[in-house]
Structure formats: C-alpha cells, structure tokens
C-alpha cells in the first residue's frame, strides 16, 4: 500500500516537473529569440513582441480569421474525401489478394508522385478552381490512408468475424460492432498523419492557384518581404492545429481506446 502511494507520488511529481520543463523550454525559446532579434536589429528577424503585435492587428481586421476559415474548410473537405476513399480501398486491398495485386502498382506510384506535380497537373487539367485544389490534396493523401488501413484490414481477427457469422448477425451490425472497431487504431493513425500532411499541402495549393486562404496570404507577405506577418500567420496556424488535436482527435482517441484501460 505504502509502496503504491509512493509510486503515485512519484508519477505526480514527475508530471508536474514535466509540465514545468515544457513551459520553461518554450519560455527559453522565446527569450533567446527576443535577445538575438534585439542584438541583430535586422528586419528579417522580427522580435516575438513584434510578431505578437502583428498577430493582434491581423486578428482585429478580421482578415486572419477569414483566411484561416477558408483554409480550414479546404482541409476538412480534402480530409473527409481522402479518408472515405482511402478507407474503402484499404479494406478492399487488405481483404482480397486479387484486388491488392491489381492496385498495388498504382498505389506505389501514387505514394511517390511529388505533391507539387499533382497540384500543377490538377490546375492545368481542371483550371484554377476549387475542385482542382481539393482534388490535388486528396490525391496526395489517399495513398497513405490506403497503406495504413490495408495493414489494419490484414490484421483483422478472423475468429471474431466467425462469431458474427455463427450468430448470423446482419451485415451492418457485423460491420459496425465487430469489423470496424478492429480498424479504429489504424483509422486513427491514418487520420492523425493525414491531417498533418493535408495542412501542409493545402498551403502549397493555395499559394499556387487560389486567391484566398493562409497559403495565398503567405505568398503575398513573401512578395512584400513582410516577415513579421508571415510569422504571425504561422503561429495562428499552429494554434489551430493544437486546438484540433486537443478538442477533436484526443477525445475520439480516448473514447475508442477506453476498453484498453
């Protein structure tokens, strides 16, 4: 009993000091940055205080929020399309050797085509329109979703599916209660890495062929050499990513892995 308490106390102090370390390292980073910026006095390295001020200005004019919203909606649409198509093909290729053999070559090709190439081709073939932008992002993401989900489909426990068959469960109950829960960890991994990749590609897509969104704004600031604004946008963007992780991804993750505790 005493031993357990001691162990608990240890982990608690461990967590506290870990959180402190986290804060401390961030604070140290900004302090160092401020110091170097003040010593150099160079317009290409604005101080964090200047960046914060710029962030505030972009925020109150509403233009930052507008562009963030545009980019977010593109990310969301491309993400949903990629996950749906990637999951469907991942399951098919994981379950059927024939399908896998037929599509594996295309998949390897898809995994290795540079994002820039698909973006350029989509803009040339479909024009500088929204559909082209979202399609380009989805094409970049779908292959990685397929690869992850295919692993999951291969690892599905046949014995549990036999239970569903022996009790003659309906196909949708079999899918939702027996099959998909076995894929959840893989779908979660695909979603996490998917968001990370899509964030990055969407900005490139916006830079090359859209007239709004964070990527377009960054391109504009680049032309004016407005490094303060570029950094302000970067931090706003990072904040959104953190919020999505904390408010959406982690709660879903906790819910579907509740039984493991």
């Amino acid at each position: 009993m005493d031993k357990d308490d001691a162990a608990d106390a240890l982990t608690v102090t461990g967590m506290v000091s870990e959180r402190w370390l986290h804060a401390l390292s961030l604070f140290g980073f900004f302090a160092l940055w401020q110091l170097i910026a003040q010593i150099l006095q160079n317009p290409t390295l604005p101080a964090p205080t200047a960046v914060a001020e710029s962030l505030w200005n972009h925020l109150v004019t509403g233009e930052l929020l507008y562009n963030l919203a545009i980019t977010l909606s593109r990310v969301l649409i491309a993400f949903v399309i990629s996950m749906l198509i990637g999951t469907a093909f991942g399951i098919l290729m994981g379950r059927h050797r024939g399908v896998n053999a037929a599509l594996d070559g295309v998949l390897v090709l898809g995994l290795n085509i540079p994002a820039l190439v698909t973006i350029i081709l989509c803009y040339i073939w479909f024009g500088l329109i929204e559909t082209a932008a979202v399609t380009a992002v989805a094409i970049n993401k779908i292959p990685t979703v397929i690869v992850t989900v295919r692993e999951g489909a291969r690892a599905v426990d046949r014995k549990l599916l036999e239970v569903a068959d022996a009790f003659h469960l309906s196909w949708h109950r079999r899918l939702i209660r027996v099959y998909l829960p076995q894929l959840y960890p893989y779908l979660m991994a695909a979603a996490r890495s998917g968001l990370a990749l899509i964030w990055k590609i969407v900005l490139v897509v916006e830079l090359l062929g859209r007239s709004n969104g964070v990527g377009f704004q960054l391109a504009t600031f680049f032309q004016f050499f407005d490094i303060t604004s570029i950094l302000a946008y970067t931090f706003a963007f990072a904040a959104v990513v953190l919020v999505v992780e904390g408010v959406v991804m982690r709660p879903i993750d906790n819910r579907i892995s509740r039984w493991r505790k």
């Binding site: 036999e162 239970v163 009790f167 209660r177 039984w259």
Partner: peptide
C-alpha cells in the same frame, strides 16, 4: 436459431459484458 460457443470465449474486447450479449 443457433447459439454457438467456441473453444475460446471470443468476446469483443471493445464491448462491455452486457454489450457483448446484446450484440447477438
């Protein structure tokens, strides 16, 4: 109407006991 029992319990680990029974 078939009830089936396997060599292993073969319960769905992500469902609670009562959900496992409800499943069928």
């Amino acid at each position: 109407k078939i009830g089936y029992m396997f060599q292993e319990p073969r319960l769905m680990p992500w469902l609670t006991v009562v959900q496992n029974v409800e499943l069928v």
